[in-house]
Design a protein around this nucleic acid. Structure first.
Ligand code: SF4
Ligand code: SF4
Lengths: 154, 154
DNA sequence: TGAAAGAGGACTGATCGAGTCGGAGTTTGT
DNA sequence: ACAAACTCCGACTCGATCAGTCCTCTTTCA
């Protein structure tokens, strides 16, 4: 099913919101949650995670909140997802703890890792800034499409 | 986490196996399951699903089994995953039944749909044949990588 | 006819994601 | 100094989904 968690989803929304309001010195988690109808405590946790990784800068106390620690253009969707959902892996044979017992016999692990890398590449090529500006994002997406089908033809 | 289900994983393994043994008229589910240590009944169900969609041709009775209904080169990983795990969607706001209530306010849905399309494109560009032949698969993957980073630079 | 194989539904246990709660620590305005 | 507003953090519940099993029926062929 290849589904992205909602937390990552929320994280992207929040970062986009912050990218759209660079003037606001600091935005509270509750503000963003109210704007989009996201459960406030859940979003808070997501933002905390992003802070821990260094994507956000937090600022406690009254009128506190969060702000981007870097320019929106330099934050990739990959970083966000990685920070929230942990390492991105297609297969189940990864996350050290409990790997698949078929690993020795498995013949598709290697090819799938390459697929995984390709997908990571796509995510790395998308920045928060792209989410805000629709035109360039659309251009880039269609560009990617062409490149992909091109590579298919070769 | 963007994880692929094990069923899809098994499906790919089975198809790869069939692609590697084109001489065998028909291979039973149990054969493949034993070869890789996959639970036989589970693999059987996966193969049944693939048969229903038309990727495989089944052949009941003694010495029965499955065979590819098309050339390995013309079967994409996307088809396989779609057949087993259902429609491929990154976000939770899709599968008609229970969509996300944030949809009207959501500002990242559209961009994420484009990301989704890019990923689907990657999967569409990988065929079962690519899983068998390591060299071309590696070449294609690295090619994709270059193209992706190229599109990032533009 | 009977063994071997596919087809398919129903069921259970395990895992994981979504969301909640409660409490502790911090900064700031007054 | 005090209280409000906010961040921080871990534990917890609940429900959905996945992995795997079981059982039954049908088809084929020796
Ligand atoms: S080892 Fe093979 S079967 Fe197991 S999770 Fe990895 S790719 Fe899938
Ligand atoms: S938050 Fe937006 S992108 Fe995510 S599931 Fe809801 S509508 Fe879709």
């Amino acid at each position: 099913m290849l589904r992205l968690t909602k937390k990552a989803d929320y994280g992207l929304m929040a970062l986009k919101y912050l990218a759209e309001h660079p003037d606001a010195a600091s935005v509270s988690a509750k503000d963003i949650a109210d704007t989009y109808g996201i459960p406030p405590q859940l979003l808070a946790k997501v933002l905390q995670r992003l802070t821990k990784v260094g994507l956000l800068r937090s600022h406690a106390g009254m009128n506190g909140g969060y702000e981007l620690s870097r320019a929106a253009r330099t934050i990739s969707a990959f970083e966000v997802i990685h920070a929230i959902d942990g390492p991105l892996f297609i297969t189940s044979c990864t996350k050290g703890s409990k790997s698949c017992e078929l690993e020795p016999n498995c013949t598709v692990k290697e090819p799938l890792e390459r697929v995984n890398e390709s997908i990571a590449g796509v995510l790395r090529s998308i920045s928060i800034y792209d989410l805000v500006d629709h035109e360039t994002a659309a251009a880039r997406a269609s560009g990617l499409q062409q490149l992909v089908s091109l590579s298919h033809a070769m």
